[in-house]
Simulated assay, not measured.
Amino acid sequence: MTSLETLTHLAPPPASPTPTDWNAVETLLRMPLPADYKQLVDAYGPGSFCDFLHLSTPHRNKEAVDLTGPMPARLRRQLEKDHDNDTHSMPHRPEDLFAIGVTDNGNHLFWITTPRNQPDLWNITVNEADGHTWYTHDGSLTSFLVALLSGNEHPPVFPRDLLSRGAFFTPTPPADADTPPAPSPRGSVTNATAIREWARSQGYDVPDRGRIPAPIIQAWEQSH
Rank of each mutant, 00 (worst) to 15 (best):
M1W: 01
L4V: 01
L4K: 01
E5R: 04
A11V: 01
P13Q: 05
P13M: 06
P14Q: 01
A15P: 13
A15H: 11
A15Q: 12
S16T: 08
P17C: 07
P19D: 09
T20R: 10
W22K: 03
W22N: 10
N23C: 13
V25Q: 07
E26C: 05
T27L: 08
L28P: 11
L29P: 03
R30E: 13
P32D: 01
P32T: 05
L33M: 07
K38N: 05
K38Q: 10
Q39G: 04
G47D: 01
G47V: 01
G47S: 01
D51R: 02
L53G: 10
S56L: 03
S56P: 05
R60W: 10
E63G: 12
D66Q: 10
M71W: 13
M71D: 02
A73D: 05
A73H: 14
A73K: 09
L75P: 07
R76M: 06
R77M: 06
Q78D: 14
Q78A: 14
L79N: 14
L79A: 10
K81F: 14
K81H: 15
K81T: 14
N85I: 12
N85Y: 13
N85L: 05
D86N: 15
D86G: 12
T87M: 15
H88I: 07
H88G: 10
H88S: 12
M90P: 03
M90I: 07
P91E: 00
R93M: 06
P94N: 02
D96T: 06
F98S: 08
A99N: 02
N107A: 09
H108L: 10
H108W: 09
L109K: 04
W111D: 01
W111A: 00
R116E: 11
R116T: 11
R116Q: 15
N117P: 04
L121W: 03
T125M: 03
N127K: 04
N127P: 05
N127D: 08
E128T: 09
E128D: 09
E128R: 09
D130A: 08
G131F: 02
W134K: 09
H137K: 02
G139A: 04
S140K: 00
L145P: 00
V146F: 09
A147P: 06
N152Y: 15
E153H: 12
P159S: 07
S164K: 11
G166H: 09
A167P: 03
F168S: 11
F169W: 05
T179F: 15
P180I: 03
P180S: 07
A182P: 14
R186C: 03
N191P: 11
T193G: 12
A194T: 11
I195P: 05
I195R: 11
R196S: 00
R196E: 00
E197G: 09
E197Q: 04
R200C: 02
S201F: 07
D205K: 12
V206Y: 05
P207W: 02
D208Y: 13
D208N: 14
R209V: 08
G210I: 08
A214G: 14
A214M: 15
P215T: 13
P215M: 13
Q218N: 13
Q218S: 10
W220P: 06
E221K: 10
H224W: 12
